[in-house]
Design a protein around this nucleic acid. Structure first.
Lengths: 104, 104
DNA sequence: CTCTTGCGTTAGCGACGGCTTAAATTTGCG
DNA sequence: CGCAAATTTAAGCCGTCGCTAACGCAAGAG
């Protein structure tokens, strides 16, 4: 989840994700949408893949990418529950107490 | 929205936001939850404020902060609609055509 | 008005991130 | 095998980021 948020913090990666949201495209096809090098796009794809935001399918020399919409759904759930959850609040309180206990 | 995502990409800022999610706290009280300098927390608060993720209320020498839950709600809506919206897809296609047209 | 308290702000440092260029890797083809 | 195509990986540049230390500033206390 940490990786997904960090990945989406970059505008270009969001754009890439949107491009492959409902269709599968090869790396070079994705790169053709931008004015940066294919290498740069490849690195962005690597980040997106490590965050499970895209899936990669290899076919010959091509590598096709598509968005993993489930991960974005999980992120949505995270935004829904993370702060509002009672467990989360309890954990925060516990950590604060712990920190106070061991001096500061 | 860009600023909000970027702000939330930092774990410590998420923690801060969670701490002031349902209660209003002064800057120093927030800082006491962490092992970093108050200056660092102040800077984080500044980022959160510029992203409209927290609201600031001044009272004497104190500055109280609380989370602006509506902004997180907006972010949720963004995650819901941004990629799946037909308008978004059309825009992407238009941009691609435009780029192809003016060479590259 | 001075002193203290509570925070913000600035300068500077080390780490990280995105980009480019160049080299490496993988796959297909003759 | 030898070569070309698609893409990743490596090295290096430069801007940004989070942090600390030091200073600056507003507001109450005396």
């Amino acid at each position: 989840m940490d990786a997904a948020l960090k990945a989406l913090a970059e505008p270009r990666r969001r754009e890439i994700l949107r491009i492959v949201w409902n269709r599968e495209l090869a790396a070079s096809e994705i790169a053709s949408h931008f004015d940066v090098t294919r290498s740069a796009i490849s690195q962005h794809l690597s980040v997106l893949r490590q965050a499970d935001l895209v899936a990669e399918r290899r076919e010959g020399t091509h590598r096709y990418y598509r968005a993993r919409t489930e991960t974005v759904a999980e992120l949505r759930a995270f935004l829904d529950d993370y702060w509002t959850s009672g467990l989360g609040r309890l954990r925060v309180a516990a950590e604060a107490a712990e920190r106070k206990k061991r001096g500061r």
